[in-house]
Amino acid sequence: MTEILFYHLERQPLEAVLPTLIEKSLERGWRCVVQCGSVERRDALDAHLWTYSEASFLPHGTEAQPLPERQPVLIATSETNPNAAQIRFLVDAVPLADPAPYTRVVHLFDGRDDEQVAQARERWREAKAAAASQGHTLTYWQQDENGRWVRKA
């Protein structure tokens, strides 16, 4: 059974939220895949994760680099899972055919972007159908005015 989570970003951009979620996943001993909708987004996130904090380091690589299977965090544009990740982060409203191989799947979308909100609604419907037929759990999180995550569904 997979936990499927939706994070509705309103107070902070993806670049502020994603590193924290990855850090928490690594603390649990999970490997991560971040799936992006384009090579440009993949490369931008790759660069960002090297510089997002002077006090922290996130070991990571991209699918375009050698030995992706050795990366604790892999940034990709495809649905492959060469590093045997337990958690998959989906950005840019990319779809995921099968959540079953993962402990957790996290959809992150910008609540200020109407297109991303519409796509996230479609992903929610798909995930809800998968949850009903395959026994996955499904939750929806939104930031409050203080930037804390509040479970809405």
Rank of each mutant, 00 (worst) to 15 (best):
V91T: 15
V91L: 06
V91W: 10
V91R: 11
D92H: 09
D92Q: 09
A93N: 06
A93M: 11
A93L: 07
A93Y: 08
A93E: 10
A93K: 02
V94E: 09
V94D: 05
V94C: 07
P95E: 15
P95G: 11
P95V: 14
P95T: 14
L96H: 08
L96F: 12
A97I: 04
D98W: 02
D98G: 02
D98M: 05
D98N: 14
D98F: 05
P99F: 12
P99S: 09
A100S: 14
A100L: 07
A100V: 03
P101S: 03
Y102S: 02
Y102W: 10
Y102K: 00
Y102E: 01
T103W: 00
T103P: 09
T103V: 14
T103Q: 14
R104V: 06
R104T: 08
R104L: 08
R104D: 02
R104E: 10
R104S: 04
V105Q: 02
V105R: 00
V105A: 03
V106G: 02
V106E: 04
H107V: 04
H107Y: 14
H107S: 02
L108M: 14
L108K: 09
L108I: 07
F109D: 01
F109T: 00
F109V: 00
F109K: 00
F109Y: 15
D110Q: 11
D110W: 13
D110K: 05
G111A: 07
G111C: 07
G111E: 06
R112Q: 14
R112H: 15
D113P: 13
D113M: 04
D113K: 01
D114K: 08
D114T: 06
E115H: 07
E115C: 02
Q116C: 05
Q116L: 03
V117Y: 07
V117N: 03
V117W: 09
A118Q: 11
Q119C: 10
Q119H: 15
A120N: 07
A120Y: 12
A120K: 04
R121Y: 13
R121E: 13
R121F: 12
E122M: 11
E122A: 15
E122W: 13
E122R: 15
E122D: 13
R123K: 13
R123C: 08
R123W: 12
R123Q: 15
W124D: 00
R125P: 09
R125K: 14
E126K: 11
E126Y: 10
A127R: 04
A127V: 02
A127C: 11
A127M: 07
K128A: 12
K128N: 13
K128S: 10
A129M: 04
A129L: 10
A129N: 12
A130V: 01
A130Y: 01
A131M: 02
A132C: 00
S133M: 06
S133D: 15
S133R: 10
Q134D: 14
Q134N: 13
G135Q: 11
G135E: 11
G135R: 09
H136T: 06
H136R: 08
T137K: 12
T137Q: 14
T137Y: 01
T137R: 12
L138V: 00
L138F: 00
T139D: 09
T139A: 15
Y140D: 00
Y140H: 07
Y140C: 01
Y140W: 13
Y140E: 00
W141H: 10
W141M: 00
Q142F: 10
Q143G: 04
Q143N: 05
Q143T: 04
E145Q: 12
N146A: 12
G147Q: 08
G147Y: 05
G147N: 08
R148S: 08
W149Y: 04
V150Q: 13
V150A: 01
V150K: 11
V150M: 09
